[in-house]
Design a protein around this nucleic acid. Structure first.
Length: 479
RNA sequence: GGCCUCAUAGUAUAAUGGUUAGUACAACGGGUUUUCAUCCCGUCAAUGUGGGUUCAAUUCCCGCUGAGGUCACCA
């Protein structure tokens, strides 16, 4: 069956990792079944509307590689895709309910409703508005909220994730479907839109589970076929068990882009947080996710967001891209992450650096701190050498001599490459009688003054003979 | 408080009415001529609790506990 799914966010700000999964799963299902993915902007709450949020949403989806078939800018046969532009449609549907006696205008002031609620709380009985229906509702006209008239009864339904569900009449109430300002509520609008747009699978967070009976009543009142319901469990914060939200500091998805996380890794991580295909596979490409995805293997319980695992996965992806697609492909993704000093370097040299450092990267932004010395001379810091755990036992004369011998050997080396450098190192070890840890630490620090670096022969090969020798000499002078 | 949902190591998960309860991340230890990382090897670590059904329960049923959601003119 071709699934028509949708991602229907409110333009209230950025998309964070706590809610982007309700875009990923609908996408995977739509692509797997060769159906359609719709982007719909639910902007009926004018109070919370944030300018530019729609762009943010689209940007996030594009970055993750999630494309859609119908939506605000690209349009489609069932537009418009901003709910605020669909007012007439909702009003027409609402009138049907008014005409069939299933909706009534409710002039009751907010204070009065609050009083009813308070009364119930005090009596410790559930607050159901249908017990307080106004006796003679006026004719419905703009400025008066419209309520659905519930018919309390039992409902049974099936959820693709949660299984068979049931709710009693106490779950049914007279929900507001059109607000005072003439805009529909989510509860009403999404049903109208999903129906008009031909959505087959309603995929959303579990928080809508408890209102589903009211939705079922609405489908019934309109004589609509029920869609498939897919309730997605929440992503929880790392420490507490709370649903991950902006208030808990949930970062926007695109913030991770700036932190050097690859979209492939992010998609992989989020898709597999709360879903697996039953195998022991950990790394999934988008194509593999589309192929293997299935609704019945979505977890029922919420999963904690664990950034450590995301970082690990990102490292895996960096290596995967390098190994499978080559340095050029990886390089394309690193553009924004090089240190300032690399700006003037040529591309070939940058790629050379990338190819010896890539397996140490957890994020692309590690490039900034890890490769600086490849692009400019580091500041000579003798303390770093003198206090090094392998070198502090050696005398200054020792260090000086080691440097001298090294410079001598390296300056006459004719074929400056990794293999011949390794031969020189082996010869130097014999000549000086020092341990590898001592000689190599000294040379490594002298050319980089970095806490870590790639294999020594590769590092020197990349830096080149001239730079290597000038740095070694600079250190020899300083000691 | 009412209603609804969920429950395997620290985390994400696999599996089965009978297994030494598997895998990955993390942690810890070890190996690869320095470091950091990769890679490899190893260690630690789980079926929330109490009943019931059964020859046998982590798996099926019930209570409890714990966690989450919802009870808006927000979505």
């Amino acid at each position: 069956m071709k699934a028509v799914t949708r991602f229907a966010p409110s333009p209230t700000g950025y998309i964070h990792i706590g809610n982007v999964r309700s875009a990923i799963y609908p996408y995977l299902l739509a692509r797997q079944t060769e159906g359609k993915m719709i982007l719909r902007i639910e902007d009926t709450d004018r109070e919370r509307f944030v300018e530019g949020a729609t762009d943010l949403i689209e940007d996030t989806l594009k970055w993750l590689g999630l494309d859609w078939d119908e939506g605000p800018i690209i349009g489609g046969p069932n537009g418009p895709y901003f709910q605020s532009e669909r007012k007439d449609i909702y009003l027409a549907w609402a009138k049907k309910l008014v005409n069939s006696g299933r909706a009534y205008a409710d002039p009751t002031p907010k204070e009065q409703i609050d009083a009813y609620r308070e009364e119930c709380n005090q009596k410790k009985i559930p607050f159901l508005y249908r017990n307080f229906r106004p006796e003679n509702p006026p004719e419905w006209k703009p400025g008066i909220p419209l309520r659905f008239k519930a018919e309390p009864k039992d409902y049974d339904w099936h959820d693709e994730v949660m299984g068979d569900l049931h709710a009693g009449p106490e779950a049914l109430d007279d929900i507001i479907i059109i607000k005072k300002d003439g805009f529909p509520t989510y509860n009403f609008a999404h049903i109208v839109d999903d129906s008009e747009m031909g959505v087959t699978h309603v995929m959303r967070g579990v928080e809508y589970l408890s209102s589903t009976p009211n939705y079922l009543a609405l489908y019934e009142a309109f004589n609509l076929k029920r869609p498939y319901f897919v309730s997605l469990p929440h992503i929880l914060g790392p420490s507490g068990n709370k649903k991950l939200g902006k208030r808990d500091g949930a970062k926007s998805v695109t913030e991770y882009r700036e932190d050097g996380i690859l979209p492939e890794a992010m998609l992989n991580y989020l898709a597999c947080l709360g879903w697996n295909d039953g195998s022991e596979k950990e790394i999934y490409t988008k194509a593999e996710l589309i192929k293997n995805f299935s609704l019945d293997r979505i977890q029922k319980s919420g999963a904690r967001y664990d950034e450590t695992k995301l970082l690990w996965l990102n490292g895996e992806w960096i290596r995967k891209i390098f190994v499978e697609e080559g340095v050029d492909e990886l390089f394309k993704k690193t553009t924004d992450f090089w240190p300032a000093a690399a700006k003037t370097a040529n591309e070939k040299y940058q790629k050379k650096v990338l190819s010896i450092i890539y397996d140490r990267l957890k994020t692309l932004s590690d490039l900034k701190t890890m490769t600086d010395y490849f692009f400019r001379d580091p500041e000579v810091n003798v303390d770093l050498i003198v206090n090094n755990k392998f070198l502090k036992k050696l005398s200054e004369a020792d260090l000086e001599n080691m440097l001298k011998v090294t410079v001598k050997e390296l300056s006459v080396l004719e074929n400056w490459n990794a293999d011949s450098l390794q031969e020189v190192f082996n010869r130097l070890l014999e000549e000086t009688g020092k341990k590898p840890a001592e000689l190599f630490s000294l040379i490594r620090l002298a050319v980089s003054f970095a806490p870590f670096s790639p294999a020594l022969n590769l590092t020197l090969e990349t830096l080149g003979q001239k730079t290597t020798l000038s740095r070694l000499n600079a250190v020899a002078r300083a000691i």
